[in-house]
Each structure stands twice: as C-alpha cells, then as structure tokens.
Amino acid sequence: MSSIEVTGKFYPTGRSQCLPVTVLMTASEGLRIVNQSNELVAKTDVSQIQVAEKLASVPREISLYEQGLVVVDSTHAVDTWLASNSLQNKVSRLESSKFTVLLCAVLVPVFLFAFFKYLIPGSAILFADYVPESLVSIASKHTLSALDNSILSDTSIDEETQNSYQDMWHDVISKIDVPTQFDIQFRQSDTMGANAFALPNGTIVITDELVELIGDNHDLLTAILLHEIGHVEHKHSMRLISEALATSIAVNYFFADLGGLVEFFAGVSNTVVQNQFSQKLEWEADNYALSKLDELGMDRESFAKAMQKLAETLPKESKLTLLLQSHPSMQSRIDNARDKHLD
C-alpha cells in the first residue's frame, strides 16, 4: 500500500481550535499530520487511531489517541487506506449496493407483515402458558375489585333466580370437559349494558341487563356463557396482554421518533393492529362456543339468536368503525353461527 497525502482539518484535543493540515497516510509510519508551515503537528501509529465507520459520503473522522481529531474527505484512496488499517464496516458495503438496497425494500414489508401476523401471536400463545396460576388469580381479583369500585354495582336479581341459573350452568359445565373451576357472578352496570365478560381465573360476570335481555331463553344465555368459557380456556387475556406489549414495543422501535402527526398515525395503526388480534380471539371464542353447543346437543341457532338480540342494543356498524373496534361485526358473527359446520 503506497502512502497518500490529503488535505484535512485537525482539531487538537482540549479546545475548539481547527488547523488546516496535510495528512500523510503511510504504510509503515502510520499517520503524519503537517500544518501549513510544513511543521509536524501530530503523528501516530495506526494502532493508536480510532476511525468512525464509513457512512455514505460523509467525511472520515479519525481520532488520534490523546492528540486530537482529524477530518478528511471520504475519497476512494482514503477509504481504502482506512479499510486496510482498521476494521472495515460491512454495513456500509450493503448500503452502497443497489441490489441489497432494493432487496431490503422488498423484504422489509414482507418481514414486518410476518412479524405482526405470525411471530407476535405465536409467541403470545407461548407466553400465556408460562404465566403462573397465582399471578392469574391476583390479576383477576384486582381487576374485578377495580371494576366493582367503578362501573359495576351489586346485582338486583333475587337469590332464587340466581340459584336456578347457577344450577343450570353447573350442569352445563360438568357436561363439557374443562379443567378450570368456574365462578359465575351477577352484577348490575349501566355503563356496560347487556354484557358478559370472563376473567382469566375462571370468574365470569354476567350483567343484570343481559339477563333481562335474553334471560327468558336459557339456551341463549348458555351460548354466551360458552363463549366466555372459550376465552378462559384459550387463555385469551394473557395472550392479549402479551400481544399488546409486543406490538407497542415494536411500533415504538420500528417507527420511533417520527414526530407529531406521523406519531399520531402510528398510534392509530397500533390500535388497528391490536384490534385485529382481539377480533381474532373473539372468533376463537365464538367457534369454541359453537362446537360445545354441538357437543351438548344444543342448537347453534341459540348463539345466532343471542347475537341478534345483542346487536339490537348496539348502534349500526360501518367498515371504518370496525377497524377501531375490538369485536368483529355482529352480523358476521351471526352468519358464522348459522353457516359454519364442524368438519
């Protein structure tokens, strides 16, 4: 390797001073830095220099141990000399090849899609299995008590009616084969209206409003209960938590520091992605309920009817609002119950 001579700027350590210099890069003697009066300002062995990795066409920054910083233009000769005397950066080569850049532009969307569509939900299922029972139980208790202190009030259904429902459900649960101990409770809630929800430890809460809406038909209420049991059996709460965590971290790092409006847009896409997960889980719970109805020798139509009744209490849906909702559209759930047959 022959020696090269280039002009550059030398910043001696310790102050903001800058000297116009000539930099001699030699094979045997390392770096020699000479000022305009042809005096040696600094010299160093190649082992005493630290070079910032090559980055596109930005000037090369070479730190001379305890002496200063020298900056020279990134020419081919300079880059070659620096590459042979320090670790060349492979990433810079990838960045300067048209082929790899094009390849990356194709692969990034493909990988991102696969990441959100398969990797995150897949690892969420794994994660859900590793959450200890005690934690699930604490989480459920805390959530219920927080809800009791906010939007839920005591039920106004009399004890006798409650007991008759409990007996019926106990009968249903004993027929389907599930390991979880279920605890079904009634609550009144203006905020939630006709609704039911399951906590991961097997506590299922049914609102007075729901009982009022479909309570006269026990089969409908049982269909809803089976849907909630589906959520518990498939550990949906834990999967949703881990999916939400993974998504928000991924969105934060892949689309970090976008600033203002774009960040708002990233927030919306985060919501859309998470709602896709959540809708997928609702489908799982629906199909669980439908297959259990078959097992019990009950009619799938009960589920369809229950959804129909619920749909009447809700505002009409549109395609846009569907993106912003955690549940699939009622109509598609009704269609699913009526059309789908077990393979």
Partner: peptide, 23 residues
C-alpha cells in the same frame, strides 16, 4: 449536505437488519 437517495439506502438496510435481529 444529506441526500435522500443516500439516506434511503442507509435507512432501509438498517431497518431490515433491525427486524431480522428482532431489534
């Protein structure tokens, strides 16, 4: 002195490397 073409190359290559190394 930044140029869009140059930075696009840097950005997309580094984004891919970030994704395949899981961050």
């Amino acid at each position: 002195f930044g140029k869009t073409g140059e930075f696009f190359s840097i950005w997309i290559v580094n984004l891919l490397l970030t994704i395949v190394t899981l961050g």
